[in-house]
Write a protein that binds this DNA or RNA. Structure first.
Lengths: 184, 184
DNA sequence: CCATTTGGACAGCAGTATTGACGCATTCGC
DNA sequence: GCGAATGCGTCAATACTGCTGTCCAAATGG
């Protein structure tokens, strides 16, 4: 039973014996381990700043996500938001209700379909979203500046590739043009 | 009260009026919004595959992280692990205890300092870690292949930049050489 | 008119993380 | 050698986010 450094994972020893050249068809052991580490640390620290602000308001990341996506798509319906976030109606309800009763978000019936509740940030909601946004801007701006424009483009390409089809579709919709007269 | 596309965030209209050229000193509004979206969707989908496997074993991401870092640093002490994960002793205890009692991880007193509990994966632990690893390899490999080697390098640079100092130090230690005879 | 869609609401459960306090064994420093 | 510091485990209470399941109301659309 191994208890020390070089364990008996055969593949690991094998992978380490390979030359340093990149072989993207067979992702080397160390390359993936590094990707795992980078994503863990990077995502954690990316969210850390906003989390601090949110904690003072008795909110969490889920609240931020709602503020973010409602801010990005004013007039979004509950159903669309659920699709983007990938959570259940009940989970959304628990963060959306407080956001509305605290005056960060307002809802209005859809014009063509009055079952819908179109969500919009209030002035208060925009102010908070902007505060969180500015906090994260510092983090991302520093990373982008240090890495350079070419690296930024590469970062975007890889992150897109990590997404599943659903997320890529959601992102395309977010980036895309505003739907006609907000009628979804 | 705005309910439609162009809200009254003055900066947004201003930013959108700028030419497309990158200005890294002043990160344009849309660039950061995109970064936020990419990180949210990308990280979520990156972890989704492993999460499925973990759910069948009544485990969560926290268990995976322990398996990952103990696998990366066999003989790591509890304190070092706490430093890397950035969580409290209590939180770690709740996932580490089950992992030990289920035979995924074993602990042994340190040789030079017997207060320490050095953690190591068992065969069973290595097998599970590998299974989770292989699942994520598919996701990352696809993203890397589609993006290309240059993009991968850029991705790494940006992710490193997102990390705070502590995380960068932790990562350097993980990537760095095995400490002498495992004596920390 | 009725099935479907959209959304709200209630109850209960699980996983992850927190703070604070206490206890024990071991090691370090003077 | 002895007190202080370190490494670790544990108890209790709490918060946030997600899940499942059930039920209900309003509006839409054949």
């Amino acid at each position: 039973m191994p208890t020390r450094g070089s364990t008996n994972i055969a593949e690991m020893a094998e992978a380490r014996a390979l030359p340093a050249g990149r072989n993207l068809l067979f992702l080397r052991e160390e390359e993936l381990r590094l990707a795992q580490d980078l994503l863990f640390f990077g995502y954690r620290d990316f969210t850390a700043g906003a989390d601090e602000i949110l904690a003072t308001l008795d909110m969490g990341r889920a609240h931020h996500r709602v503020l973010h996506f409602v801010g990005r798509r004013p007039g979004i319906t509950v159903g669309e938001l659920l699709g983007i976030l990938g959570i259940t109606k009940q989970s959304l309800g628990r963060v959306l209700q407080p956001l509305m009763s605290d005056g960060y978000v307002v809802q209005a019936p859809g014009e063509s379909d009055r079952r819908q509740r179109r969500l919009t940030l209030t002035e208060k909601g925009m102010a908070l979203e902007r505060r969180l946004f500015e906090r994260q801007r510092e983090t991302v701006m520093r990373a982008y500046r240090e890495a350079g424009p070419a690296a930024v483009e590469g970062f975007r390409r890889v992150m897109r590739g990590l997404m599943g089809e659903d997320a890529q579709a959601s992102l395309a919709r977010l980036e895309g043009p505003e739907p006609e007269g907000n009628r979804r």
